[in-house]
């Protein structure tokens, strides 16, 4: 691969921090077509399985006094439901399954990506951009369907002085269209950065002198990444709720 040639010129220290993000076919070595089974497919399937195990198999007891798995499932349910209700309001609960889907997918993809040798599906901009665009389109369409042209008052800041309003409208418009970009790049960038940094530190352990230090650093980064994995899923979800609130109540 490209990085092999790149590492050879650096006096023995070979870093391949980006190799872990390569999308490869699971079987064989051919081209990656649209329907090829790739490692991305594999880890997404694992994500589905994990969600199924937690939310369906975990609650199969339907116990009034919950088991551990059921407690976690109920915790996730309550967490997202409360977030939707608190941030976006009661009428946004129609979208609760949709938001729950995004949250569960991101959180499990992030955590599964933390396993050694794993492929992090959410570290790819293609994946997060699709999710962000889904949210963006939902919010925009919903806003126009619910409020009609009044949705445009989102860009017309009526509390500002009249002279400033056109300028603010332009800024608001730009920031509105930047939303899906920042929404997707935040998640993908965070996951990519964390994994790449871990890989770089792991690369340093090739030198025996600094190996203990690098292993310590990898452990510390790993702990941080566990936190970041959850927080980024949380942030993605809560921003979705915030955008939904904008669509339902554009007058701020």
């Amino acid at each position: 691969m490209a990085t092999e040639a790149h590492g050879a010129g650096e006096g023995g220290l070979a870093f391949h921090p980006m190799d872990q993000f390569l999308v490869k076919p699971l079987f064989g070595d051919g081209e990656v077509g649209m329907f090829t089974l790739t490692n991305a497919t594999f880890w997404m399937a694992l994500t589905i399985l994990a969600i199924f195990a937690l939310l369906v198999m975990g609650t199969s007891g339907r116990a009034t006094i919950p088991s551990r798995m059921q407690s976690v499932a109920e915790l996730a349910y309550d967490f997202v439901r409360k977030m939707v209700e608190d941030v976006a309001g009661k009428e946004a609960l129609v979208f609760f399954p949709y938001i729950m889907t995004l949250f569960m997918f991101i959180v499990f993809a992030n955590f599964l990506g933390l396993l050694p040798m794993a492929f992090t599906t959410t570290s790819h901009i293609a994946v997060t951009a699709v999710m962000a665009m889904m949210v963006f389109l939902t919010v925009t369409i919903l806003g126009f369907v619910k409020n009609g042209p009044a949705f445009l008052s989102l860009f017309w800041v009526s509390s500002a002085p009249l002279a400033l309003r056109p300028i603010l409208a332009v800024i608001e418009l730009i920031s509105y269209f930047v939303r899906p970009v920042s929404h997707s790049i935040r998640l993908a960038g965070n996951m990519m950065a964390g994994h790449a940094v871990i890989k770089v530190f792991a690369g340093f352990s090739q030198v025996a002198m600094i190996a203990p230090l690098s292993i310590l650093a990898v452990s510390a980064m790993y702990g941080l990444e566990v936190l970041v994995s959850f927080i980024q899923a949380y942030v993605f979800t809560i921003l979705t709720c915030v955008y939904l609130k904008d669509a339902l109540h554009p007058h701020h």
């Binding site: 608190d86 941030v87 935040r186 950065a193 790449a196 927080i231 809560i238 921003l239 915030v242």
Partner: peptide
């Protein structure tokens, strides 16, 4: 706390942009 995380996310997103540009 939700507002806190939103604020942190916005501040961090710009840092991620610069990281992306570096990459």
């Amino acid at each position: 706390t939700a507002t806190l995380f939103i604020g942190i996310a916005f501040a961090e997103a710009l840092g991620i942009f610069s990281f992306l540009i570096a990459l």
